[in-house]
Each structure stands twice: as C-alpha cells, then as structure tokens.
Write a protein that binds this DNA or RNA. Structure first.
Length: 590
RNA sequence: GGAGCCUUAGCUCAAUUGGUUAGAGCGCCGCCCUGUCACGGCGGAGGUUGCGGGUUCGAGCCCCGUAGGCUCCGCCA
C-alpha cells in the first residue's frame, strides 16, 4: 500500500493521526534547516515538513528532492503553527511531519515548467504525459469525462441504447476522404475507417432499436485545424418515429444535463431557431455568433433607384446591397482597413467600401454618389452616429452575405466586442438547402449527406429539377458561433432515396454497389427516422474555455497529422507490407 | 496545393542603425539559511542564435533557400 489517503483529504479532525501519502513533489522550499514540500496528487496538495531536530536523517534526504520527484511519506498529521496557515489550500491548516520517506522515482530536469503556461506547443506535445500533469489539462480531461458520463446518464433515462458500430468499415465516395486499412485476408481490398456511423445507425433503426446513441470515434483524412483532428468523437444519436422537434427536445435536454454536470450551469431551453436563409441574411453565416450585434442590414429599398452604379448594378442583376455598422470603429487604422479589404476580396467581393463618421462628417470616396434622401435613409436604417464605421457589400446574395459575415467576425475581434463574461448562446439553424452545386464536378452534391430528407413541401421541385430551391429537413445546433452538431430527418422510402441518388447523378450500378444494403433495408420496413451528431471535442472545448480541441484530447496530433510523442505515422517493416500485398511507389521507399 | 506569423541557454524572453566578449528571469549545480507557501541570499555551469548558402571589413539582425511549429484559405457529405 502506497498511501492511506489522497493529498486533498487532511482536515483539522485528522490531527494526531498517522498517515501515508504518495505523489509528486510540486515545489520544495528548503530553508537549510526546516524543509517544506508541497506533495501533489490528482486530488490536491498537502504540505510536508521535514525538521532536522525531529529526524536529521530524513531531513538530509529531503534536501535532495526536486520538482516532480515521486515520493511516499508516512508521518503524523499536525496543525500548522498559528499564523502560518494557508487559506488558499483546502489542506492549508494541516501539515504532515514525516517519520518515513521513500523516493519512488526521481525526475530529470523538467522539459518545461509545470506551473507556467508554456508557449511552445510542439515541446508540450513531445512530452504530452508531462503536459497533462498541468492543472488546466488535468481539469479538461475530467470535464470531458463528466460530459461523456452525463451524456450516457441522460440518454439512458430517455431509454436510449448505446450500440457499438464497426471501426473497420466500408469506403464511400461521398463526403470526406477515407482512411483506408488494407485487408490481409482479402488481398487488394480495403476497409475504411468510418467518417461517422451514419449508415449503421440508420440500419439500427430498420433493426427496430428505435433509440440509439453512441459516443463514437470518427475518422476523416482531411487537413487539420484548431478545431479539427483526423480522429475525433461524436455523440451520435438516431431515433425512429420522430420529427425535428423531437430531436431538438432530446438534444436540448441532453445539453442541459451536460452543462449542469460539467460546470453546474443552467442553460436556457428551448433554443432559438433561425432558418438558414435568415441566419445568412442577418449574420452572414450559417453558424451565427450572436454574442455581439452588428447585424447585416439590407439596403435594397434605399438604393433601388440609386445613381451610384456599383450598388445599382448589383441590385439590377438580382443581387443585394447590405451593410454592417461597426459602432465606434471610425478610428480604424490603415492596416486594419487593408486587412478587411483583403478578407472581402478573399470571399469574392471586388473591393470594400466603407464610411467613417468623424466630426459629424461622412468620410468616404463613395459618399459623393449618394443623394440626400439616400443619406437620410441610411442614417436612420443603420442608426448611424458619430464615431461609427459602415461597411458595404453589394453583390449576389451569397457573396454579399458571406463577405459581410466574415468582416463582422473580424471587426468584432478587432473591437474586442465579445463580452468577457461567459455567455452560452445556443440556437438551431434549420431548413438548410438539400443540395449544393459543385462547379468543380459540374454536378449537384448533398449539402448534408445523401440520406437527408427533403422538406415535404419541396419534394415536388424534384420533377422540375429546381434543386437549388429544395430545402432539407436538416438542422445544426450552434453555440457561440461554433457548429457543435448537426443532423436531419432521413429518407425512409426507397423511391424517394432513388430520386435523391438520381439528383446526385449516382448511376443505378453505383447505387447498388455502394448503397445496396441500405436500399435493400429501406424495402424491408424501414421506419421514419432521424437523428443528430454532436462534436464532443468541440463541445468540451467550449465548456473548458479552450481555443483548440487539442487541449481537450489526451493525445492529439499536430496540424500535419503527426503525433509528435510517438512519431506516428511511421514507416513499417517490409514484411508487414508483403503480408498486405502492398508495394510502395519508388519515391516513397525508405 | 496556397497565404501569414514564428524559431536566440532546459523554459520564457531581451540584444539601439549591421559593430567588439549574445544578456535577464526561472530552472539546473555548489555554498549559506529553522515557518515557508513564487521562501530568501551568494557563486557557478549552460549558446553551432533551427539548418544551408549569400552580401559585408564585420550578420542573431539584411538577402536567398530549406526544415520545423502555429493560424487561416482550399478541403472537411
């Protein structure tokens, strides 16, 4: 037995007891005579005091202790001397006077200080086991555990069944790039790691499970970001005999349970709902951050007859003129204006027009093109006041909205508009388009996935091939401008599914080869069903106040998909390749 | 595939306009110190300034290339 209790357990009632503690040396304070050691385990800190007059031998050994050495101490619990208590520690009234010290393991010079916020992330990643000792990351791991547990507990109360689905799965052409696993027993063939358990969970509905969930690992071989890793975790849910309303209710209940369990926060339910069209029109994004204002304002009415050609021609071409008012941003620097112009161009605008309101004057090269009526209408519609800065977008609806949406986010950063206090702004975005046009492939693709149900009132549009106008029974849940989940009601009728494949230009042969099992299942009594998947990593990231999901994963990969600690991916023995009937291209040979 | 930022001691950073021996704090090593909790004091070791090339009398600093890290675009049904 290494210890009788943890390092966060000693209280006044323990005075006089003999205890044994084990843990890491958090810090030493060596006075030459008396030596203080803060002993740390995962629960907390306890001060250990070595006094030469009590035990000269032990004190001598304690002089050699350094940070992160692992030790075991046995001794007597004593009250600290009056006036030396530490109110910042739960155990701050107590200390342990040891009569025994075992040094279980010594630590080398540390790769980085454990009590500071290290800057160098690849150093942290190479010593991830060490990094995870830091309180912040240790806390994140525990929050993640509580989120997962709350998820299971809540869904269990709602009579959901957790079912595991295969990791060795089948490649599908739709969606993200697959990770492939070569089959040894069937040479030349490959498994794929699942991008999501999408088809399996639908098949479980056909199987009569009715309420399924899984905390599922998903894999996508795409480039990484602060909030994207090649392997990540979804809270995956599917239910039979449901409408979107039912999915919203169970998701809201689950998120409420999660926030209560993880942070003791009561979130407001039900969440607001916005259609995709409205979200993009008002915020220039399908995942609006509503923690600050600066909404997009439509100015079509004002400029319909304008003599300012840039605005007029956008409107005449069926586009829009929109603007955002950055309150108090007239002091914008040249560098900031240049950066915003770059952003506008990056997202398809030809340039960026803006007006600064300084000393009662509208400063901009475009103001001279405005009539007095137009200026008055702008003033009232945008609530323009001294010190404001107005940014315009005049283009096709999609481009104008996206440009202003991106500007809105960057300006909010520049102006530090996001409130310092925690706000949990949840909302549903509904009625996504079913299809999106791929100029590259010259065909329609599914915006969500090919099993997404069109809205009933839009199904008739299939015949006229008005694919752009068809809306999906699909929804995302957004928190503070981050998409934390999305789902849809699925197609359960084989005829409608065929229509969908046809719209996606998937040939009947390919349909059978790739989705035959699902089509067959739809013919054998598939119930109406739908579901949702939430990104567990992103959710935990937000709950922990982190800026990257790497900080809520135990062993993440860097932005090139490399695990710097294990140095994976790595070369393999040629014999392994031979077993798999694989050969490397000449330039890839070691 | 593309763009931006970054790389100086174990760690975090500094080094005037290109100038002589590249500094500081923390950590490490040694000595001193009996009530600290970021303990304190004195001393010491520790550097191919990521790497390669160029310009220059002289490069941490300027130029070119390259490697690595981070962020973003593309990509992510």
């Amino acid at each position: 037995m290494y210890r009788s209790q943890d390092c966060n357990s000693l209280r006044k009632s323990d005075i006089g007891k003999q205890v044994t503690l084990a843990g890491w040396v958090n810090v030493t304070r060596d006075h030459g005579g008396v030596i203080f050691i803060d002993l740390r385990d995962r629960e907390g800190l306890t001060q250990v005091v070595f006094r030469p007059e009590e035990n000269a031998e032990l004190a001598k050994e304690a002089h050699s202790l350094r940070s992160e050495d692992v030790i075991e101490v046995s001794g007597r619990v004593a009250a600290r001397l009056p006036g030396t208590e530490n109110p910042d520690l739960a155990t701050g009234d107590m200390e342990v006077i040891p009569n025994q010290l075992r040094i279980l393991n010594r630590a080398d010079t540390l790769p980085f200080p454990i009590d500071a916020e290290p800057q160098n992330e690849d150093l942290r990643m190479r010593h991830r086991y060490f990094d995870l000792r830091r309180p912040r990351l240790a806390r994140n791991l525990r929050v993640r555990h509580r989120v997962a547990k709350a998820t299971r507990d809540y869904l269990d109360t709602q009579r959901f069944v957790e079912v595991e689905t295969p990791i060795l799965s089948k490649s599908t052409p739709e969606g993200a790039r697959d990770f492939l696993v070569p089959s040894r027993i069937t040479p030349g063939k490959f498994y794929a790691l699942p991008q999501a358990p999408q088809q399996y969970k639908q098949l479980l509905m056909v199987a009569g499970v009715e309420k399924y969930f899984q905390i599922a690992k998903c894999f996508r071989d795409e480039d990484l970001r602060a909030d994207r890793q090649p392997e990540f975790t979804q809270i995956d849910i599917e239910t039979s005999f449901v409408t979107p309303h039912d999915i919203f209710a169970v998701t809201e209940g689950m998120l409420a349970a999660i926030f209560k369990a993880a942070r003791n926060i009561d979130i407001k339910t039900p969440f607001d709902r916005l259609t995709y069209r409205e979200a993009v029109s008002r915020y220039g994004s399908d995942k609006p951050d509503r923690r600050f204002g600066m909404e997009l304002v439509d100015l079509g009415e004002i400029f319909r007859q304008s003599s300012f050609k840039v605005f007029r021609s956008a409107l005449d071409a069926g586009g829009v003129v929109k603007a955002i008012n950055a309150k108090g941003f007239a002091g914008i620097t040249i560098g900031q204006a240049d950066e915003l112009t770059e952003i506008a161009k990056l997202y398809g605008a030809k340039g960026l027009a803006f007006i600064k309101i300084e000393n009662g004057e509208w400063k901009s090269p475009i103001v001279k093109f405005f009539s007095e009526t137009e200026k008055a209408a702008l003033q009232s519609k945008l609530k323009i006041a001294e010190g404001d800065c107005i940014f315009f977008g005049a283009d096709k609806w999609e481009i104008a909205c996206e440009v202003l949406g991106r500007l809105r986010l960057r300006i909010a950063e520049m102006q530090k508009l996001t409130p310092a206090a925690e706000i949990w702004d949840f909302l549903w975005v509904t009625d996504f388009p079913l299809f999106e046009w791929s100029a590259e492939e010259n065909k329609w693709n599914a915006m969500h996935h090919p099993f997404t149900r069109p809205k009933a009132e839009d199904i008739s549009l299939f015949e006229a091939k008005k694919f752009r106008e068809i809306r999906a029974e699909a929804y995302d849940v957004v928190l503070n401008g981050v998409e934390i989940g999305g789902g849809s009601i699925r197609i359960h009728e084989p005829q409608l599914q065929e229509k969908m494949f046809e719209a996606l230009s998937i040939s009947p042969e390919d349909r059978q080869a790739q989705f035959g099992h699902l089509l067959r299942a739809l013919h054998l009594g598939a119930p109406p069903h739908g579901g949702i998947a939430l990104g567990l990593d992103r959710l935990v990231m937000l709950i922990c106040g982190e800026e990257t999901i790497r900080d809520v994963m135990a062993f993440p990969k860097n932005n090139r998909g490399i695990d710097l600690m294990t140095q994976s991916p790595a070369e393999v023995d040629p014999r392994q390749l031979r077993d798999l009937s694989l050969k490397l291209g000449k330039d890839k040979k070691p």
